[in-house]
Simulated scan of single mutants.
Amino acid sequence: MRNNHSRKLQEGRGLIFNVFVLLSCIGLYGQEQNDVEEGSTSADSKLTITDFAYPRTWLSSEQHASFTMNYKIKPGLFFELQGDYDTYLLADVFRMPFVTKLYISDKLYLLSGIELEMERDKMQIDLPPPQLKFKNGWGYDIRSNFSLEVEYDLHFNKSIYGAYGTPSLLSVHGKFRF
């Protein structure tokens, strides 16, 4: 009796494995392959869109996503719209800066714009109202995939809440694109 049960268990495992392999093959070979034609992306393109996200993991319930849209007005002048969405234990945070970038040389640019930051309260802890910020700064493209930026944020909303209580913020950060 016991031998019969273990044999059926092994057959069931073998069937599950075969179904998994079959579905994997269908998934791999059933997708249409689209090759990018040479020259289809151009340095003269007016609109570029980049995004990044990673989902929740089994260790954490956090999720982070961002996008950047650049629109070339004329050579050396760009509009940039960003969006960042982060989920945390206590709140979800959405940040959307809109800046204008003016290149004053091949690699050095000035930036100016506004930013709106909002939070969604998950735990009913009375989070601050949406924050409005005025941004100024400069950036330098060290390489085509790496740049440094210095930004000064002036917060219009006054608040007693932690980081929101500061009237302004100076930040230095790097951007690595890959």
Rank of each mutant, 00 (worst) to 15 (best):
P97V: 01
K74D: 08
F134I: 14
I142D: 07
Y152P: 12
G165W: 05
P167R: 14
E149A: 08
T57F: 08
V150N: 13
D44P: 01
N18R: 13
G162P: 05
S6N: 02
Y85I: 05
E119M: 12
Q131R: 12
T100Y: 10
G39W: 00
A65F: 04
K122L: 13
E38D: 01
T68A: 14
R2N: 10
K8I: 11
G139P: 12
D141T: 07
K158E: 14
M96S: 15
V93L: 02
L47N: 03
D35C: 13
K46E: 05
D141F: 09
T100A: 13
Y85H: 07
L111M: 13
D44K: 04
G174D: 02
P55H: 10
K122E: 00
K133E: 15
L89K: 09
E151Q: 06
L22F: 11
M96P: 06
L169M: 05
P55G: 15
L9Q: 11
K74M: 15
M69I: 02
E149L: 10
A91M: 13
T166I: 05
Y85L: 04
Q131M: 11
M123Y: 13
L154Y: 15
C25R: 13
M96C: 15
L23H: 06
P97S: 05
P130M: 04
R7D: 07
E149K: 11
Y85K: 00
R56Q: 15
Y103R: 15
S144Q: 14
T87Q: 11
G174K: 00
S105H: 07
T57P: 04
L15C: 07
L90A: 10
E37T: 02
K46C: 03
V150T: 12
L132S: 11
I73M: 11
D126L: 10
G137S: 12
T48S: 13
T57Y: 03
